[in-house]
Structures are given as C-alpha cells and as structure tokens.
C-alpha cells in the first residue's frame, strides 16, 4: 500500500513497515510489538478510508525524492497549510510539471508542506495546484472531515 502511494510521486522505495491499527510504522523495538502498542518508533503514514496520509517526517522524505515539485512564496505557504489550493502567483519556481501530475509543495526553505495535483499551467492567474494534503492537517484532523 505504501509502495503504491509512493509511485504516485514517481518514487520507488521498499520499506519494511508494520501496520498498527490504522497507521504504519518502521519498527526497531520489535520485541515490544507483541505487547499491542498504539504507536511504535518511526511513524510513516496513516490510513483514512482508502487514503494514505504520510506522517510529517515521511512527507519530508517524499519531498526530497518526488519527481515533480513546486516552490511557493510565504503567502502561498500560509494559505496552503491552512488547507487552500495554490494560485499561480504563489509559485516562485518549479521543475515543469504538467496538468495531471502530482507535485510536492515546498517552501523556500525546501521543506515539504504537502502535495497536490496540477490543475492548470503553473503560470496562469488562477488555481493551478489542487491541494490534496498539507501539514496543517495535524491541527485540523479530528476537527473536520477534510484532510
């Protein structure tokens, strides 16, 4: 499931993950796994319905290896982590993704804020990246249904 999720970003990576409840972990303390923890070692992702949502840490690994990326200015950064789509004017650089491509969204420090799908040519003055996931979901999760 995680491998399939990573392929959407053009990443091929095999991870020895263990599923605990609705979350996935890379487990080092294997002797404690049998004691039924709710969280163990490195959290990779969570499952919400059929959707895989990466952890903040794993998102940074995706951000470094994803095929397509856009870099946003500070205004775009703030709006994006509040759950908004990206307008063309927020994008300061990119590596030429096309409509339909899945892109990671980086700030000017190179930190991955989330990802979305390119909805229109990136130089247009309208929504050009439809947000799918952003780090602000940490604060929003549990409060409303949209991730």
């Amino acid at each position: 499931m995680i491998e399939k999720f990573l392929k959407e970003f053009g990443i091929t990576m095999a991870l020895p993950v263990e599923r605990v409840g609705r979350s996935f972990f890379v487990v080092r303390d294997k002797d404690l796994l049998s004691k039924m923890p709710v969280y163990i070692n490195e959290c990779i992702a969570h499952l919400r319905g059929e959707t895989v949502l990466p952890s903040v840490g794993f998102l940074q690994r995706i951000g470094k290896r994803a095929k397509w990326r856009v870099v946003v200015n500070s205004d775009g950064e703030w709006l994006f982590i509040c759950g908004r789509d990206l307008f063309g004017k927020s994008i300061v650089s990119h590596n030429n993704p096309q409509p339909g491509d899945r892109v990671v969204v980086l700030n000017q420090h190179g930190e991955c804020l989330g990802y979305g799908d390119v909805a229109a040519p990136l130089d247009e003055k309208r929504v050009v990246v439809r947000r799918l996931f952003d780090i602000g979901h940490l604060l929003r999760r549990g409060k409303k249904k949209r991730f």
Binding site: R28, K35, P37, V38, Y39, I40, N41, C43, V56, G57
Partner: peptide, 21 residues
Amino acid sequence: RLPGLLMNLERCGVENSVVFA
C-alpha cells in the same frame, strides 16, 4: 488524550518511543 500525544510524537519526529494505551 491519546490523539494529542500521538500527534506530538509524529510532529516532533520521535522515533524511539513505544506508546501503550
């Protein structure tokens, strides 16, 4: 109180904790 704990562990990149309810 667990969701808040797990969120903080994830956010802070804690990889050496094992949590039991």
